[in-house]
């Protein structure tokens, strides 16, 4: 029997397949399709202190092998999440990761305190959202501010903290090192890559927000490269994501250095995508006589 379990910053996941923040809501919708306990972990939709309406539509544009989104962190606010969504998620039989996003350091601390108390297993700190004007990406583009946000969360968090890195930077390893030094227990990458599309007939951007974040198969090679670079630069584990749609894609991110892998945009084509990715990963491991999924992490043989 292949051992699919992986240890992500001290939290044991039953398999390495996680669902990415913002693509899985708070889980309800997918429970109609399969038992949520099949997943390694659920990363919930990004939370802010106050409820957020998000950006005006259209919020999605298709691109070659990918999509742009400009949802803008629409969410009911952290208090609502703790009171109304956590009880449901807690009994889902899988690990829960809260994804939090603050405008100020105090907000990061407040969010960390509240979701810790609500019983999440891990916290993912979003310092890389390209779709909000204030906060979001601003935190993740400089090592100093990224470290400050990490420290603000660590101050109040009672569970391991994952810091989600932006690919929209010149040197992602500098940010990764800074958040590691500030106490991050893990990093996750990549968030979406800033992009734009224009309707050539109307000369209008397809997204009402003009720009949005690119995800899906198109970003997979960028994710592989950045995970590889970050794995070489830090000792803390990596939750990898970006364009994963098959077991082979997941294996690729793990070989590059990821301990666990999140599936996001692939859910839009097929709600069963994470289950298929998990089964295909298991088949790959069996085919190659690899006894444990964890053996893949960082096992690339670079030239």
């Amino acid at each position: 029997m292949t051992d699919l379990r992986v240890n992500l910053a001290g939290v044991m996941l039953k398999n390495p397949i996680v669902v990415a923040s913002g693509t899985f809501g708070f889980g309800h919708e997918f429970a109609d399709y399969y038992d949520l306990s099949e997943l390694g972990a659920i990363c919930a939709k990004g939370l802010t202190v106050a409820k957020k309406d998000g950006n005006p539509p259209p919020r999605i544009a298709e691109t070659p092998s990918g999509i742009l989104n400009s949802v803008g962190l629409q969410n009911p606010g952290v208090d609502y999440f703790c009171a109304h969504e956590m009880p449901y998620l807690k009994q889902s039989g899988t690990k829960i990761i809260a994804n939090i996003s603050g405008n100020t350091l105090d907000e990061f601390t407040e969010l960390a305190e509240k979701v810790s108390a609500a019983g999440v297993d891990l916290i993912e700190v979003n310092i890389s959202c390209p779709n909000v004007k204030c906060g979001g990406l601003a935190w993740g583009t400089q090592p100093e501010s990224a470290a400050a946000a990490t420290a603000a969360v660590k101050k109040a968090a009672t569970v391991p903290v994952i810091v989600k890195l932006s690919p929209n930077v010149t040197d992602i390893t500098a940010i990764a090192r800074a958040v590691e030094a500030a106490g991050a227990d893990a990093v996750s990458l990549i968030n979406t890559i800033l992009g734009m599309r224009i309707d050539v007939n109307t000369r209008r951007p397809v997204l009402r927000n003009n720009m949005g974040g690119l995800s899906g198969p198109a970003v997979l090679p960028v994710a592989v490269r950045m995970i590889y670079q970050v794995a070489c630069a830090v000792k803390i584990p990596i939750l990898g994501m970006g364009g994963v749609a098959s077991g082979a894609d997941a294996a690729e991110l793990m070989l590059a250095g990821a301990t666990a892998v999140a599936v996001g945009t692939a859910l839009f084509q097929n709600p069963y995508a994470p289950i298929h990715v998990r089964d295909e990963l298991q088949a790959y491991l069996e085919q190659h006589n690899i006894p444990a999924a964890s053996a893949l992490t960082g096992a690339v043989m670079p030239y």
Binding site: R59, I60, F268
Partner: peptide, 14 residues
Amino acid sequence: ERMGCGIGACLVCA
């Protein structure tokens, strides 16, 4: 409205 997941999870079809 333009859609992603179609089932209420991604919040793009606002």
